[in-house]
């Protein structure tokens, strides 16, 4: 039995296999409609996230399974002071697999150490969010057909943005991927990420100027500056509008640029871009569901 806490737990071969399964689900949805008949997914969401929770639930329903769970800590026994370990042991008696989101970093790992069923990390604070990365990877795979030789721009909150950290971890394993980190100085990519890239000889540059680097990008990954990651409201208000992508800023972009965003967006991508063929963020949502389906099948060892 295995869980998925960090995207790095999946080898590139396993990622390729998940991508292949997702491709097959997209091509033949009927083939998968009863793969999880009689199975239950527990969605334990200690922090609200409509999108990720609905994606997991839709994924399980489309596999023929059922869903139980809660969508905020107040409606769980955590409000009574129950530990993550005890919650994991308890839920193991009711369900076949857990998807957990928690505001505290490392909580899903603690759950996986105590549960007797697979645990999927559905986001732990600013730390990891591996299934968002699976959605990102399927989007790049469907749009570009490969991961090698891509120049990937990551823009916005690179300090607290867990989706950014997980995506870098996944993409760095492919050949000749170059990263361009675009952020205000206060939200720069953590030094440990840069250190580890340097150590492996992976190319990266850092800038505060999105337009200057736009022409070199194959992928532009936009992120939201998240209120809930700040202790100080003043800092949040000062930084929230740092980067807003508008049609003007895309003037020098490549014709085959792919614009990704983990969503929800606030205002960092102008709605005027939504109809641009380079905008991939709503397709990304759909792909996220297919990758969660592929992951559930893999962790439940359903053939």
């Amino acid at each position: 039995m295995r869980s998925l806490i960090d995207i790095l737990e999946l080898s590139t071969e396993e990622l390729d296999s998940l991508l292949a399964t997702a491709d097959d689900i997209i091509a033949n949805p009927q083939k998968y409609a009863h793969k999880c008949d009689g199975k239950k997914l527990a969605t334990l969401f200690f922090e609200p996230s409509t999108r990720t929770r609905l994606s997991f639930e839709a994924a399980m329903y489309e596999l023929g399974g059922n869903v139980l769970g809660f969508s905020e800590a107040q409606s769980s026994s955590a409000a009574k002071g129950e530990s993550v370990a005890d919650t994991a042991k308890t839920v193991s008696c009711y369900a076949d697999i857990i998807a957990m989101r928690h505001p505290k970093e490392g909580a899903p790992l603690v759950a996986s150490m105590n549960a007797s069923i697979p645990v999927i990390n559905a986001g732990d604070g600013g730390h990891n969010h591996p299934t968002q990365t699976l959605a990102d990877l399927l989007t790049i795979h469907r749009e570009k057909g490969h991961f090698d030789n891509l120049t990937v721009g990551l823009c916005g909150d690179l300090k607290f943005g867990r989706t950014v950290h997980s995506l870098i971890s996944a993409l760095r394993r492919y050949n000749n991927v170059k990263f361009v980190f675009i952020s205000p100085n206060e939200l720069k990519i953590p030094s440990y990420v840069k250190e580890s890239l340097k150590k492996e000889g992976i190319k990266y540059t850092e800038t505060t100027d999105l337009e200057a680097v736009m022409p070199e990008l194959d992928i532009l990954y936009m992120t939201r500056v998240q209120r809930e990651r700040f202790f100080n409201e003043e800092d949040y208000l000062r930084l929230k509008d740092s980067y807003i992508l508008t049609p003007e800023k895309l003037t020098n972009a490549k014709a085959d640029l792919s614009i990704l965003h983990p969503l929800p967006r606030v205002n960092e991508i102008s709605v005027a871009i939504d109809n641009d063929p380079r905008a991939c963020y709503f397709k990304q949502v759909l792909y996220g569901k297919f990758m969660r389906m592929a992951l559930i099948l893999m962790l439940l060892e359903v053939e």
């Binding site: 993550v84 928690h102 505001p103 505290k104 970093e105 490392g106 603690v110 730390h127």
Partner: peptide
Amino acid sequence: RCISATEQE
């Protein structure tokens, strides 16, 4: 923000 900061056990 670490889980070890809130869970005493």
